[in-house]
Design a protein around this nucleic acid. Structure first.
Lengths: 237, 237
DNA sequence: TTTAAAACACTGGTATGACCAGTAATTTAA
DNA sequence: TTAAATTACTGGTCATACCAGTGTTTTAAA
């Protein structure tokens, strides 16, 4: 895209990706050493290294000093390079995730505050529906029902800017925690806690208690943040 | 992640990402040349290059031969979807502007809160500069100096998500009030009030008083909101 | 004076060779 | 036989030189 066709490194990256995707180098296959690759492809070791670093950054290979480089399990095509730059950052910069959850706490608690003030009868009806889909203890807690309820709360705030902004943050959050989320919602204790917290949010809103709604929301997001934290910490792969 | 802590390149990548996240290098900012970076960070050009290649592979920077490397708009893809549908709302639906200012109040007051906690010495120096350009009573109050100061406050929060989000809101706000803003800042009384409010924000931050900083910011934005309101009311076109 | 060409000073891209730092197999000495 | 030392790989880093684009400045011609 940028200079894949012009620069030697770009061309080499493309070649190497081809070889991996074509199956010349299968997953777990050990690549030749950098010096051998340089010889074989007719490039300097500099070019070979930069190309390998790019493959590494893309997650196609993994490299160990003194050992060599290995092809990883690749289950997605090259097209996947269009994912958000921010996603990478969430992996290496853990605090970015907390920054995100911090902003979410500010906005969504305010949304709950407004929701308790402004929600119409129709809103409350829909909110109740969303809540009941969530609250029944026999059904599984899914990301869908979870976000559905929260989105409904946000809609009740009747602030389109708030809605837009929080939708963006939600998209980011989904990408950021998609790996560790399954671990989270499997935990039965977490499920119970979340259900209890959302019950408090729900009741505060229908009872028109803005302060309580805000407090309940803050409590919930801090709970999530805390648990995401602990999951991330015990998650070395 | 893999060897971020062991290798020089890994550490450098992390550092550079931090600088981008912290806002030291903002979107569209041109990075120093590779040779300068090598000198500045004390690494060989090889390491610098490999780190930059990784950032490039992640989509954080874009590089042109003979030109240099630039920080990309991290949120760019989303931003278009974000702004476009909303702009036209401001014309027809006046309260959207207040919704926007409401969200801004939530986020920017929180940013000021964090700024009072987290601002570094360098931050405070830059903040002081921005404030002094703003505070001198003989110079005109311009949109530039105004937003410059507020942006600096936001940067002091050291929360990249907050920075990005508020940048978007600022862009929206500019489009929304570009017609009525001249009427606002012409008013000498308004100017004095704003200066006084920003002085309180500034002093609260340098005195490391988060609560006062938050309160001052809320006060200021509510003041703006109120005056925008009155201007809009006497402004039918 | 104006203007187009040439020189210059940057930028990133590539090549080489040397050396450091891990790893693992091989050799050596106990 | 076994444990330690050697050796030969691996990737990681450094320094230097040069190539290749880009933009500005200078220069020389019109």
């Amino acid at each position: 895209m940028t200079n894949s066709n012009t620069s030697a490194t770009g061309k080499l990256v493309y070649q190497l990706e081809e070889m991996i995707l074509e199956g010349v180098w299968r997953p777990n296959h050990k690549l030749p050493s950098e010096r051998r690759l340089a010889q074989r492809f007719g490039y300097s070791r500099t070019v070979i290294r930069e190309a390998l670093r790019q493959l590494q950054a893309k997650g196609l290979i993994i490299t160990h000093q003194g050992i060599g480089s290995y092809v990883v399990e690749v289950f997605h095509s090259i097209e996947e390079e269009f994912i958000d730059p921010l996603v990478h950052l969430f992996d290496s910069h853990e605090r970015t995730l907390f920054d995100l959850l911090d902003v979410r706490e500010q906005l969504e608690s305010h949304a709950a505050f407004l929701a308790a003030q402004r929600a119409t009868q129709t809103d409350l009806y829909q909110l109740t529906q969303a809540y009941e889909r969530l609250a029944s203890p026999d059904t599984e807690l899914t990301m869908d029902t979870y976000f559905n309820f929260h989105h409904m709360v946000i809609l009740c705030s009747h602030n389109p800017i708030l809605v837009q902004t929080l939708c963006q943050l939600k998209a980011l959050l989904c990408k950021a925690i998609q790996t560790c989320l399954p671990l989270l919602i499997q935990d039965a204790e977490v499920q119970n806690q979340v259900r209890s917290q959302q019950q408090q949010m729900y009741e505060a809103i229908v009872q028109r208690d803005p302060v309580a709604a805000r407090r309940a929301t803050k409590t919930h997001i801090r709970f999530v943040s805390h648990h995401v934290h602990s999951v991330k910490k015990s998650n070395f792969y």
